[in-house]
């Protein structure tokens, strides 16, 4: 009896602590959301209002569409490149595999601002045709390929090769085996990579800020930043930031509802 009540006290303390930290992590988001839902009346008092969200439709949503299209194109290219690469890294043994893997991850370890600067210098100097929409795609596919690789490697490790072998024994060709056996089994793992690539490339800020000057294309997060430096804390700017976070949050929640956290563990979650 005594032991169980001590356990209960520990549980209460544990949950309180985790809730407090979660509140701290959500604090910036909550503050932005609250600000976007308030409007100041002429006499100085504040009231609940969703007017700010209607104010930004004309000016801000085109930027959101641009960000979405960049994120989706990035995902398609990264999946096409990352899944075969992860398959090769898990299923085959060859010399220098570890070095190659570290090399492929290199971009992840360089601070965003350095990578962005090196990209715009290279675009100006060498890849002039990238000064436009495809410059963003190129930057993000390379920058976030590592996420797709990591999640797919975790997913391929979950799949026992004996299923593939038995499919081959039963007469399935190489492509039939891959598309009918391997791919359905790693699908959820690949979707974790897609989720992370979406969240990060949709909200990517530093590279987009530097490319903004060169390409005259303004993605949604850069627009939010430009508005903050121009007009500080208006409700409409908070609404812009809130819209981006709500889209990201909705995607995350739908993903967690459908797939769960299994494939994100070992990549970005404990």
């Amino acid at each position: 009896m005594k032991a169980s009540s001590a356990e209960r006290v520990k549980d209460v303390i544990s949950y309180t602590y985790v809730l407090l930290i979660s509140g701290l992590l959500l604090l910036p988001f909550t503050v932005i959301l609250m600000r976007s839902l308030t409007a100041t009346l002429p006499d100085g008092s504040t009231t609940f209002s969703i007017k700010a969200y209607f104010d930004i439709i004309a000016s801000f949503w085109p930027k959101v569409y641009l960000s979405l299209s960049i994120a989706i194109t990035t995902i398609i290219i990264d999946t096409a490149i990352g899944v075969p690469a992860a398959y090769a890294l898990v299923r085959y043994n060859f010399r220098g595999k570890k070095t190659l893997f570290t090399m492929l991850n290199g971009v992840w370890y360089v601070p965003g601002i350095c990578y962005a600067l090196s990209l715009i210098i290279t675009y100006y100097f060498l890849y002039k045709w990238f000064l436009g929409y495809w410059g963003f795609i190129a930057a993000y596919t390379c920058g976030f390929l590592m996420l797709m690789l990591m999640t797919c490697i975790v997913a391929f490790r979950y799949v026992d090769p004996c299923y593939e072998e038995s499919a081959t024994c039963l007469g399935a060709g190489r492509f039939a085996t891959f598309f009918k056996v391997t791919l359905p089994m790693v699908g959820p793992g690949v979707s974790a990579g897609i989720l992370l690539t979406f969240v990060l490339s949709f909200n990517e800020f530093i590279t987009a800020l530097l490319l903004n000057l060169a390409t005259r294309l303004q993605t949604a997060p850069v627009r939010v930043y430009a508005d903050i430096t121009r007009a500080r804390v208006l409700p409409s700017i908070s609404a812009e930031a809130a819209v981006l976070q709500l889209i990201s949050l909705a995607v995350v929640l739908v993903y967690l509802k459908v797939v769960g956290t299994k494939y994100l563990r070992g990549v970005v979650l404990i």
Partner: peptide, 9 residues
């Protein structure tokens, strides 16, 4: 996952 959305927010 929320802080991953970006430091801007």
């Amino acid at each position: 996952l929320v802080p991953l959305f970006g430091e801007l927010y």
